[in-house]
Write a protein that binds this DNA or RNA. Structure first.
Lengths: 357, 357
DNA sequence: CAATAAAATGGGAACGTTCCCACGAGAAAA
DNA sequence: TTTTCTCGTGGGAACGTTCCCATTTTATTG
């Protein structure tokens, strides 16, 4: 089974002109007679000519395609970053292909190699939580393919990236809990391997310090972001002699899973335990009670990363980040307060229905 | 700024052998001396050789890449279908690139052309809700690129596809509402242009018929799946002289948005209005009350579509669906009953906390 | 030791496109 | 008229790989 595509040579033959002229006509080159161009375009359209981008990229050493690599896309975070990036890139005339790793390091390496082998012009990436070895990224850099990271940025690489102010965000989240009177605040932290996790944890610690609340390491558990663990850890917190009266969770799914445990234990949110998440996932608004969370400007993150990548790709000379500092943009987060920390009065649930018994 | 890649010719030159031999060594061809192969592989590794897939696909007319086209991926449905498909395809040695259309017809056409121009070996697709003209798909077929549809399948094209039993699913969903005693069931339907919408609507109508409940067209509103509309339409339902005591929504986001309206109106779910959604999105479990919904086997849908595509791609001769019937696989759905239709007793919320005042 | 078979290698075409260079025809300038 | 310029066109190289065919080397057999 073999696909049959029309080529510019087919068109040239039919019109009795050279492939050069056909090429010029199709690419909009000025030096071509208007009648010739018209004839070529018409024939190309009627024969459904599809340019062969393989041949083009191969010959021109530019594919006008960028790859976006994300660790997963079941939460709303990554999809909406992608949509933001895609908008900018498509406007700039670039094609976008997306690869997702299922949080697997091997897939990540394979996908980087895949993109390199397809000679993409640039890559936007957030690495998996498993990634400890960054050789596949430095490889891309060595070859000269611009890379822009977001969300998760390898520490010991000097690469352009877009992040949010994780430290301040965590600080504010915890400060919010303190200001509503909580004194015993637990933290479900992310894996130590991720910078964001460590920054958020530090923000947590420093917020406690600022308000003279002693930091109790027993109230902090790092975990690997698999949902089963949350339930175990949260239960552990509830079983402490002095259980916490608030929880700051590394992200919204964690917070939501924790809420399940709390509710199942018959405790009230926020009265017994107030909960704050991170990212403002779509579901944060939907859960009961609504989840207070630090919103990330996902679309902006994507757009910013895309613009940075465009700049890198258009640079005359490859930016050599072994000698100069790579640009990093930090975007602001915003605390969204919902019922999981501060309860609004409910509309009366017993209001009479109209027109019915 | 130009990327520099090592080529097999570079390697050949350094080892003083021909590019043919290098090619053979790298591709695992039998006719090559073991020592030569070892030398080639070592040099390739140390110089970080990256095969040029453009050249390869260009020369071989096979890219071993398939494209997946989805209308959007903010809900969990499409991402998890993709993950399912990706698993199968990667196991079969195919690369996967994902394109998302933001529900835009123009983007869809552009992306199909993009994939064709990159000479992908096959395409898995669910079209946008805007798509009325399917020329870009028939184009792919004419050229000889296998296509497999899922979820949304163009009616007047005879193409392989994977769907769920939308009609029966809708029937069962409505039957469930009837069995819990509801008599006045509204339906927020999807756009008429989508087959699924029409099938689900018919399932709704026929379920009513079976139980001798008169079908009232005023209780059915088709809409374009934009969230603002839901609120308007739902409010309209509530304002009817005889407002409905149940709602069957075309999908979960619709159902959830409707729940917001119901709750804001001070009505109780499910006592005043029972609600059923469709798809069992991640959020269906998280909302309050939990949303009863027809679960779709998303991962299976993806895996099935991928397997069908593999079969198409491996067919010796292109299947000509202008003369024979294209295979369609229908997968089963499953009703997930949650509190939005049948309330479980709640754990007491006033249970005493231990170890605390 | 010659004859033959098998294994390993080299040479070159092919894939579709762009781009550079050359060339002819006609127009404009000398 | 001759020279110069511009416009439109054609020819061919280049891109990196595979694959087919030819050739050389090595091993095996009579």
């Amino acid at each position: 089974m073999k696909a049959k595509y029309i080529t510019i040579i087919d068109i040239a033959r039919q019109l009795n002109i050279s492939k050069s002229t056909v090429s010029r006509a199709l690419t909009g080159h000025p030096n071509v007679n208007e009648q010739t161009r018209k004839a070529v375009l018409e024939l190309a359209a009627s024969q459904e000519y599809q340019r062969n981008s393989l041949a083009l990229g191969f010959s021109r050493h530019k594919t006008h395609t960028v790859g976006i690599l994300v660790p997963e896309f079941m939460s709303t975070y990554f999809p909406s970053v992608i949509v933001g990036a895609q908008t900018v890139l498509q406007e700039a005339g670039y094609n976008v292909v997306i690869c997702q790793q299922n949080e697997s390091y091997e897939t990540e390496v394979a996908n980087i190699k895949l993109l390199l082998s397809y000679r993409v012009d640039g890559i936007i990436v957030s690495h998996t939580k498993e990634t400890r070895n960054f050789d596949h990224f430095t490889l891309a850099q060595r070859i000269g393919i611009p890379l822009v990271f977001f969300n998760r940025i390898p520490e010991d690489m000097n690469v352009p990236g877009v992040v949010v102010n994780d430290y301040e965000a965590a600080f504010q989240a915890v400060e919010h809990l303190i200001k509503i009177g909580r004194k015993c605040i637990a933290h479900l932290a992310g894996p130590e391997s991720l910078v964001n996790s460590r920054l958020r944890r530090q923000g947590y610690i420093d917020a406690l310090k600022k308000y003279n609340i002693p930091y109790n390491p027993d109230l902090v558990l790092s975990y690997d972001l698999t949902m089963e663990k949350v339930k175990i850890y949260m239960k552990h917190f509830l079983d402490l002699a002095t259980p916490p009266d608030a929880l700051f969770a590394i992200n919204d799914p964690t917070a939501i899973a924790a809420m399940e445990v709390v509710k199942a234990a018959g405790l009230r949110i926020p009265e017994d335990i107030a909960i704050v998440g991170f990212s403002n996932d779509f579901s944060a608004e939907l859960v009961y009670p609504g989840l207070t969370t630090m919103a990330q400007p996902t679309s902006d993150i994507g757009r910013t990363a895309a613009n940075m990548l465009l700049q890198e790709m258009h640079a005359k000379v490859m930016n050599d980040y072994s000698i100069k500092k790579a640009p990093t943009v930090t975007l602001p987060t915003k605390l969204i307060i919902r019922d999981s920390t501060v309860k609004k009065e409910q509309p009366s649930l017993v209001k009479k229905r109209k027109g019915r018994i």
